[in-house]
Design a protein around this nucleic acid. Structure first.
Lengths: 114, 114
DNA sequence: TCGATAGTACTAATACTTGCGTACGATCGA
DNA sequence: TCGATCGTACGCAAGTATTAGTACTATCGA
């Protein structure tokens, strides 16, 4: 009997269960904001791709951040073979909070330029 | 010699020093989001007014939240007699992150309605 | 001048966050 | 079938956030 729980597919909140304070809290962390910017700019990715790009050294650290973003309803994370496909939940976020994600991403781009 | 530092006027970040991740992190807390919604809806207030409205029991708790919002560049807080006038830094936020504050406030209103 | 009021400063307890090392399960490819 | 790979699960350590009690300063008004 293993000490480790068997991995199963993740729980993602329904669109209607997304809350703006959770979204803001999730994106209010520089590592997660950078991750979502990358996902939005360059399309879907697996976890390892982004790890190097964001400059985080430990896989387990990003596993934590993916969970926060997933639980807040910001990203989808689905298993695909032995990789996990990541994508921004743009349809859901834009439907529920029109203009929010674009304003945030534009703001992050502006901060970076300055 | 008192153990307590004398109060002086607060440091507010310059418009150019505001960072979107700090704004999101500040507004990613339900108490602070509610406070900013009240300020935006009903105009400038002092601290005590909002205390009751938001349902926070201790003044010192709100003192902490005002500091977080102030440091993030979300609110102005200026002494006026023995009260402190609070207001949303709408001009600065709208100039730096167009549409962000409106999207957030609309989102909070939507969440509340649901 | 003096009591009441507004709201901060400080302290502390508790809970949550972030980061990473290590153990592991599942899958791929040779 | 077996080693390499992907990325999670778990656990720990250090840091930060949240809340509130109490001490305090400054100001207002009678």
């Amino acid at each position: 009997m293993s000490r480790y729980r068997q991995r199963m597919s993740f729980r993602h909140p329904e669109r209607d269960a997304i809350r703006v304070d959770a979204v803001l809290s999730a994106l209010g962390n520089p590592v997660r904001l950078a991750a979502v910017r990358s996902l939005d700019k360059d399309g879907d990715r697996n976890c390892g791709n982004l790890l190097a790009e964001i400059g985080v050294s430990a896989k387990s650290t990003m596993t934590h951040h993916w969970r926060v973003l997933r639980d807040a309803g910001v990203i989808w994370q689905h298993q695909h073979g032995r990789e996990y496909q990541l994508s921004v939940r743009r349809e859901d976020l834009d439907a529920r909070y029109p203009g929010l994600l674009d304003a945030i991403l534009a703001g992050a781009a502006r901060d970076e330029a300055a």
